[in-house]
Structures are given as structure tokens and as C-alpha cells.
Simulated scan of single mutants.
Amino acid sequence: MSARLRTWLFNLVFFGGSVPYVLATPLLAALGSGPLRYWVRAWTRYHRRCARLILGIRVVASGTIPAGPALYPAKHQAMFETFELVALLDAPVVVMKRELARIPMWGWAAQRYGMIVVDREGSAAALRGLMRAAAAAKAEGRSVVIFPEGTRVPPGEAPPLKPGFSGLYRALGLPVVPIALDSGTAWPKHGVKRPDTPIRFAFQPAIETGLPRREIEARVYAAINALEPSQSSDRHSREDGTP
């Protein structure tokens, strides 16, 4: 079966099969956060099974996932990891850009689950909202996942970190576990997926709290780009003018 046909079949089965999950979300939300998180984890596992059985795409995870809550800054190359990290990390809160909240079915269900929607332009009001929502997640004992580059990037690219990450690091006081991944190779943003290609998730060693901003940003930048051998680790500074 061709890659194009397998991609079409995956889209048909996954998105068609997602309808019951999305339609049941209001009922599960009314029953409390526990049932809703269980339902969302089941949806992410369904996504994993569709990717594995139809596309032959398997996840290869390495490193150690801490037992307690942590702040997970992750590389972002595809929509794939927005599902897979929920399954791997036991229903964390995920910081996502506002555009994703507009995706039919997925965006609405994600917000009901507790995703933090932010303006990726990084206005002061958006950053304050991000801090409040993340603090609420910490109070519930949930980990927080953030894509500190701000958006999906193609394999081989390593843009500077956005300002939201360092603010979260200071505000939450949680250990930081960077995640490098290479999902963009198998799961391009547009067009045909590449079946039978493994996707690596490399959990890097935990970084302690209380580091100066430049140091934590440099270490996280290098860690999330660990699977990008073409990138130099000295490209960690962010745009001028951020506080």
C-alpha cells in the first residue's frame, strides 16, 4: 500500500473514530476532571494505535520520566507529539498557541481537558494568563508541557526560545525535563506522512530550579535540539526587548 493511501486511511480512521471521543467530552467534563483526563488519555492511545497499525509509526522513548510533576519544554515538529506527550506523561497540562484551539473537534476538546491557550506574540497580558493557568495546574499536581520555540518547526531548524518559558521556570519552581524529538521526519506538516519511520522521544536529564535566566535558556535550548546534529548549541539567545 502506498504512503499516500496509508495517509488517507489514517485520516479517515482517526478523525472519523475521534467523533465519539469529542462528543462525549461535555458529559465527562460534568463528571469531574478525573473521568475527563482518563477519556483524553484513551483518545491519545487511540491516536497511537492508528499511527502504529495503519502507518507503521512507532515511538522510541529514551531517558527517564520523573515520578512527580515537572516542567517539560519540548521540541515541536508535528501535531503528533501533542497527542503522544499526553499519553507518555499521564495527562499533563499543555501550553498551546491560540491557532490550535480553532482546529475542529481537537481544539475544543483540548480546552475542556485543561490545555492552556496563549497568544504566541507574547503580550504582557498573555504571559500573566499563562502564569496563572500554569500555577493552577501545579496546584493540582499536574506536569506542564510547553513548546518553547512557540510553533512547529521543520527538522533541522532551531529558532530562539520564546519568553514564556523562562517566566514559567521562575514561577513554577518545578524540575525541568527537556524533550528532544524528531517527529517531523515521519509526520510533515503538510502532505503525505512517511510510514514505517520510528519517532524518537529523548527525555534529557532533569535541570534543577533556581538557575539564572540565560543559563536555563541555554541548557534547555541545547537539550531540546539534541537530535538536531546540524544545529550549533550557541544559538540560544532570544530576541532583544523581552523583559
Score class of each variant (00 low, 15 high):
residue 115 M to A: 15
residue 67 A to P: 01
residue 45 R to A: 13
residue 21 Y to K: 05
residue 201 F to G: 00
residue 236 H to V: 05
residue 86 V to I: 15
residue 140 E to S: 03
residue 80 F to D: 11
residue 102 R to S: 14
residue 5 L to S: 06
residue 194 R to N: 11
residue 207 I to G: 01
residue 221 Y to K: 14
residue 170 R to G: 07
residue 74 A to L: 13
residue 208 E to F: 00
residue 210 G to W: 08
residue 214 R to H: 13
residue 163 P to D: 01
residue 184 G to N: 04
residue 168 L to R: 05
residue 178 P to M: 10
residue 167 G to H: 13
residue 141 G to S: 04
residue 146 I to G: 02
residue 25 T to W: 11
residue 201 F to H: 08
residue 16 G to W: 08
residue 115 M to S: 12
residue 123 S to K: 05
residue 227 L to V: 03
residue 104 P to Y: 11
residue 195 P to W: 03
residue 85 L to T: 04
residue 128 R to Q: 12
residue 62 S to T: 13
residue 122 G to E: 14
residue 3 A to L: 07
residue 202 A to D: 13
residue 216 I to S: 04
residue 69 P to I: 12
residue 168 L to N: 02
residue 92 P to Y: 04
residue 25 T to A: 12
residue 71 L to G: 08
residue 34 G to R: 13
residue 146 I to H: 05
residue 65 I to D: 05
residue 127 L to W: 07
residue 180 A to D: 00
residue 210 G to Y: 07
residue 121 E to W: 12
residue 81 E to P: 05
residue 66 P to N: 03
residue 15 F to V: 11
residue 149 E to M: 08
residue 211 L to V: 01
residue 66 P to I: 04
residue 59 V to P: 00
residue 25 T to F: 14
residue 115 M to D: 15
residue 67 A to D: 09
residue 82 T to Q: 09
residue 35 P to D: 03
residue 73 P to E: 07
residue 201 F to T: 01
residue 116 I to Q: 11
residue 229 P to L: 02
residue 28 L to P: 02
residue 51 A to N: 08
residue 33 S to V: 11
residue 231 Q to T: 04
residue 218 A to V: 07
residue 217 E to A: 14
residue 33 S to Y: 07
residue 94 V to K: 00
residue 202 A to Y: 00
residue 35 P to M: 08
residue 83 F to G: 00
residue 2 S to T: 06
residue 130 L to F: 12
residue 115 M to E: 14
residue 179 I to G: 00
residue 13 V to F: 09
residue 222 A to T: 04
residue 201 F to C: 01
residue 93 V to E: 12
